[in-house]
């Protein structure tokens, strides 16, 4: 009887430790990876049969049905240019020019990996919807307070205190697909935070 109890306890401890550590590792991994350009990160094995089991599990949790890199490169930013976590209470200036792809978009997601509710129903800007500067570049304000021009609301913490941005490059140029870390991507600069 004592031995049986010991066995059950050992299995339960092992289950909690083993499954718990796997879930923790996979959930905290997001869609980032070894390839980065500024605060943007990607993993080139996303969606591919080359993906290792951990990458496959991370993609299942944070980016199910993602396309492989021949079709789309997904860059994700969880931090600003200074390395601080992106927070819903802060305002950021996302500034850049057309990335080398047929079509691109920048989309904001809450901590739960879903779109963040806001009265404007604005979740993203794409290459054909973003308002541009005279030089063809663009500035997108990301923050809780309405801003002139391009503005993606952070939703004021409705789905957590932090958020991530995903930059999709559909049909990336050949040079970009070959060397994603060499792509110049939009800068993310923190402007202010609500106290």
């Amino acid at each position: 009887m004592k031995l049986a109890l010991k066995l059950v306890a050992a299995v339960l401890v092992a289950l909690v430790l083993g499954a718990g550590s796997a879930l923790l590792l996979v959930r905290s991994g997001g869609l980032g990876g070894l390839v980065s350009s500024g605060p943007w990160e990607t993993d080139l094995t996303i969606g591919s049969a080359e993906a290792d089991p951990y990458t496959r599990a991370r993609v299942a949790v944070a980016g199910l049905l993602a396309l492989n890199r021949s079709e789309t490169i997904y860059f994700t930013a969880a931090r600003d240019g200074e390395g601080d976590r992106l927070r819903t209470a802060c305002t950021y200036r996302v500034e850049g020019s057309n990335p080398p792809a047929r079509w691109w978009s920048i989309t904001l997601y809450g901590e739960d990996h879903y779109l963040v509710a806001n009265p404007q129903n604005r979740f993203s800007y794409g290459g054909e919807t973003v308002l541009r500067n005279e030089d063809g570049g663009f500035v997108i304000t990301v923050g809780p307070e309405e801003a002139d021009g391009n503005w993606i609301p952070t939703g004021q913490g409705h789905t957590g205190d932090t958020f991530t941005l995903t930059l999709r490059l559909y049909n990336p140029d050949e040079s970009a697909a070959r060397n994603p870390s060499g792509i110049v991507l939009p800068q993310i600069a923190k402007e202010a935070c609500a106290s």
Binding site: A10, V13, A14, G18, S21, A22, P53
Partner: peptide, 29 residues
Amino acid sequence: LWIAGSIALAAVFHILTVFVLPYGIMNRA
């Protein structure tokens, strides 16, 4: 021996979870 066994079993559960998770999430989708 109990500690070593539990750690070994935890490693098995860890690997199983990583392998099974994508199938489970796809099944739900």
